[in-house]
Design a protein around this nucleic acid. Structure first.
Length: 509
RNA sequence: GCCCUCAUCGUCUAGGGGACUAGGACGUGGCCCUUUCAAGGCCAAAACCGGGGUUCGAAUCCCCGUGAGGGCACCA
């Protein structure tokens, strides 16, 4: 695709990017992807990554949202050099704390003739829209206060009328929006409204606030969702009106709603489809047992590609080749099944101790008393079975909850191992386990049980015995590897299970 | 309705005129391995949205359709 652009070659000495969420809720996975790409680009160039909170809509601000966003970002490893909590040279990093700045520059625009005061009341605007609708027109602000004389403005102000400040958009000509990812985008000025820059609440709208902040915070690249493309010509006009050097804009492709139409948003609900989790909030990924490294790897390959036909790579490797210019502009769904695979790969690579520590919180959440030493023993055998750490709960339930062995005899026998032979086999196993002189380790267990199993069937195959043994020991037909499970359970508990099995067999005969 | 963006296997993607019988990954199916379930190995099916151009040559460039997404707030 063409990337014709009017972008300046070297616009800034230092690379500075910001992630600027509004605190209207939790951080969702799409926001995290935007943050990641911004973070990667800043880090790649040895620049700074800044967190700024855009809370100029007081009505929509949600308690705890800032905390949630920061917690989620830190979990992912997206640390910031400047921000509300860590401070920085351009403090404060919360927009409501910068109100005077916006007030000053909004009025500067009015003085210079780039903006004007609009005294329309809510009622008046509503009536205007109704009339337009009645005429079959698309509702739009009709610029009724744009050309007031200074006397008229003074008169209305003297009456104490409230006003907003609107941008005085050129009525003719074009505005070019240079976009790093798409190239130049051309807009007809007549299509652009006189947007509100400064609200009657005394706070700016996004349009004004971001330009002022990005200027004074010396931001070099503005990364944001592509829902901003349509208002970008306004932003270009503002940069020109202020006479400030414009940063490079890069509009990130949207992530589509996995469950249907539209884009993924904070309203999107997480759900489970078969065994596939489809998650939205970043914190949910943590709760489900995804590793932050896997999530980052996953996100890196959506809308951008590592290349070389490689799917698994480290952040350090990504840093070597990441570039915003190579971001794919098309909207995309998240390939959740790939995340499960990736996460499984990352889990397999974990050292036993790290794996045990990762799993422990999920077990403890069940109210189970977790012993890390035992966990280090059983965690590696199940690591290859896990897509998500939370699944360890089901695999290890037999360790923490006694699954009652209250089953018909068919469950602990086999057509190649009828009750009489089963009794012999389980008795021998019981004798071994309860013999204080026997060695209770993996190698011995393997040798002894295989030998018992082979001796008991006609064709010398240990399979039937080991299968029933698994059921006896864990109470489940599917479990972690048998010998490791027996080891983790310990001699006493295994012996008790075998005693129960023998009782069932005795009851049958 | 108007404006803007985008368009390669089911999904995520590689691809910047000839290296394309279009590559990789996930997922799916089959085989192997196997004490369950997995993992692993091998194999297979699977795509350039349609139509016009430009060119010796187009998945790649242009135009028109179509589809998808976004915007048209005193929300960001």
């Amino acid at each position: 695709m063409t990337r014709e652009t009017t972008l300046p070659k070297i616009p800034h000495m230092t690379i500075r990017l910001r992630f600027a969420p509004s605190p209207t809720g939790y951080l969702h996975i799409g926001g995290a992807r935007t943050a990641l790409f911004s973070w990667l680009f800043a880090k790649k160039h040895g620049g700074q990554f800044i967190l700024r909170i855009e809370d100029t809509d007081e009505k929509r601000s949600v308690e705890g949202a800032i905390e949630n966003i920061m917690t989620s970002m830190r979990w992912l490893g997206l640390d910031w050099d400047e921000g509300p909590d860590v401070g920085g040279d351009f403090d404060p990093y919360i927009q409501t704390e910068r109100a005077e700045l916006y007030h000053k520059w909004a009025h500067w625009l009015v003085e210079k003739g780039h903006a004007y005061k609009c005294f329309a009341t809510a009622v008046e605007l509503d009536q205007m829209r109704q009339e337009q609708l009645a005429r079959g027109e698309t509702p739009h602000y009709d610029r009724r206060y744009r050309d007031l004389s200074s006397e008229q403005v003074a008169q209305l102000e003297a009456e104490g009328r409230e006003y907003v400040i609107r941008h005085k958009m050129p009525l003719t000509g074009q505005t070019i929006v240079p976009d790093l990812i798409r190239g130049d985008i051309v807009f007809e000025n007549e299509q652009i409204n006189d947007y509100v820059l400064f609200k009657s609440t005394g706070l700016p709208t996004y349009h004004l606030a971001h330009v002022i902040d990005d200027h004074f915070m010396e931001i070099s690249h503005v990364t944001r969702g592509d829902e901003w493309i349509n208002t970008a010509p306004l932003h270009v006009q503002l940069w020109q009106a202020f006479g400030w050097e414009m940063p490079i804009y890069a509009h990130m492709p949207v992530i589509l709603n996995p469950s249907g139409k539209g884009k993924l948003s904070k309203r999107t609900q997480s759900f489970q489809d078969e065994n596939q989790l489809v998650l939205v909030r970043v914190e949910e990924f943590q709760e489900a047992g995804y590793l932050p490294t896997a999530v980052i790897n996953f996100l890196s390959n959506v809308g951008w590609s590592f290349g070389d036909d490689r799917e698994i790579f480290t952040v350090a490797e990504t840093l070597e080749r990441f570039d915003l210019k190579n971001v794919n502009p098309s909207a995309t769904k998240l390939p959740y099944s790939k995340l499960d695979w990736l996460n499984g790969q990352y889990i397999q690579e974990l050292e036993p101790e790290a794996l045990a520590q990762g799993i422990a919180p999920f077990l403890e959440a069940q109210g189970w008393a977790v012993d890390l030493e035992t966990l280090v023993l059983v965690a590696p055998p199940i690591s290859v079975r896990l897509k998500r750490l939370a699944e360890a709960v089901d695999w290890l339930r037999f360790l923490y909850e006694q699954v009652p062995l209250d089953v018909p005899v068919e469950k602990i026998t086999h057509k190649k191992m009828p009750p009489e032979q089963a009794r012999v086999a389980f008795t021998r196993a019981h004798d071994f386990v309860t013999d204080p002189a026997s060695t209770y380790d993996l190698a011995t267990l393997t040798a002894v049980l295989n030998e018992i199993g082979a001796s008991v069937t006609d064709n010398g195959a240990a399979g039937p015995f080991l299968g029933t043994m698994r059921f006896v020991v864990t109470g489940e037909p599917v479990s972690p590897p048998l010998f490791e499970s027996m080891l983790a359970l310990g001699r006493e508990r295994v012996a008790a299970r075998l005693t129960q099995a023998l009782a069932i067999l005795a009851g049958d005969s």
